[in-house]
Simulated assay, not measured.
Amino acid sequence: MIVSELTYPDGYQTEVMHVQADQSIGKIFMFHGMLEHHERYIEFAHFMANNGYDVFVCDLRGAGTSAHDQNTYGHLAPETGFQQLVDDAQYLINQHEDERPTYLLGHSFGSLLARRLGQVMGHALSGVIVVAPPPHPGVAGEIGHRLIATAMNRKGATHQSKFFERLLFGRYNLKFLPARTDSDWLSSVPDEVDSYIEDPNCGGLPSLGFLHEVTRASLDVTTSARIHEHPKSLPVLFVAGVDDPVTHDGEGLNGIIQKYRKADIELTVVTYDSARHEILREAHREQVWLDILAWMKQIKTH
């Protein structure tokens, strides 16, 4: 495993983990979720590398140790922050361009990034894996986005608001009450929940700018218009836990599946009973990994 520092054209620095396969048959770029970091994907990355895929995982802008060092942890610039993540990802992918098939995998907020990349550079890709996908948040999401924008205009983009963090994410734990922690919705495995809580590079209060970009991306990337930008020839795999409150929020998983099918995009959906949000770290994670691998192997010949 190689961990290197990548500097983007604007000077922002991040860490990139590269897990190399002995005999590579493809590349997979992974994008983590909100307020977590690349090191949480080491176990899965090694599994994929052992099965022939070079894996690249970087800390997204505003996440991980690099963000702490640059005083940007949990913050994205309003209006431009999500597009900056798209530009960053394209820059990373282009650094490793070659003839091998290229796959993208995004978890949660990272899945919005992976889906957007599929829409803007899909003809250069072989497959997109969408893990624990936020669907379109509906009217509630639109109202929340407007409220965040109003608060941001008054208090500034870097202001951290416990109220809005609770408004957007606090309800996710409700179905698991009485809960052991505020983060039980992440996984049915207590040790995994504790690992997240105890990790200094996970969690914390995001800025209003960050929340603005999360809600804006959720509203934009999941629209029918955006989904129709995705090439019909680019296969997509949706992987989700049946008990994941994020995936079933807003219009829900079924709503976004219908949009992809109406757009005539080749779509495979796999769901797992008793699994919560962090499906790659759930009790039956190895089955999830095997299913992702099997899907990649079967589309490789298309």
Rank of each mutant, 00 (worst) to 15 (best):
I143Q: 12
A140L: 12
V128N: 06
V131F: 06
G110W: 00
F31R: 05
Y53R: 01
L92Y: 07
G64V: 09
Q70E: 12
Y103H: 05
G127T: 09
V131S: 15
Q83N: 13
G81N: 08
R146I: 02
Y103S: 04
L104R: 00
A114Q: 08
S111E: 04
G62V: 10
A149P: 09
V86S: 01
A114V: 06
V57A: 11
G138Y: 06
I93M: 13
F109C: 05
G127H: 08
H75C: 11
T72K: 15
D69N: 14
P133Y: 00
D88R: 00
L125P: 05
A124L: 11
S66G: 10
V120I: 14
T72N: 15
I93N: 03
V131W: 04
F29I: 07
V55D: 12
R115I: 14
I42K: 13
H68D: 12
M34K: 02
A89E: 01
I148D: 07
E39Q: 15
Q90I: 03
L125F: 07
V120M: 00
H123P: 03
N51D: 15
A132E: 13
E43C: 09
G26W: 04
A49K: 03
A132T: 08
G127F: 08
P78Q: 03
L105H: 00
E142Y: 03
F109I: 03
P133N: 09
G118C: 08
M121G: 03
P78S: 05
Y73R: 13
E97N: 13
Q95E: 08
H37F: 04
H75F: 14
G26L: 02
Q95S: 10
H145Y: 15
Q95D: 06
T65L: 15
E99P: 00
G62A: 12
L105W: 00
D98N: 09
H107K: 00
R61A: 12
M48W: 13
R146V: 04
T72P: 14
A63P: 04
H136N: 15
S108K: 03
V139A: 06
G64Y: 12
D87V: 08
F44H: 09
H136C: 10
T150C: 06
P135E: 08
G106P: 06
Q83V: 07
S126W: 01
H145C: 05
A124I: 01
P133A: 08
I143P: 03
V131D: 15
P133I: 01
G141N: 02
Q119N: 06
G138C: 08
I129R: 00
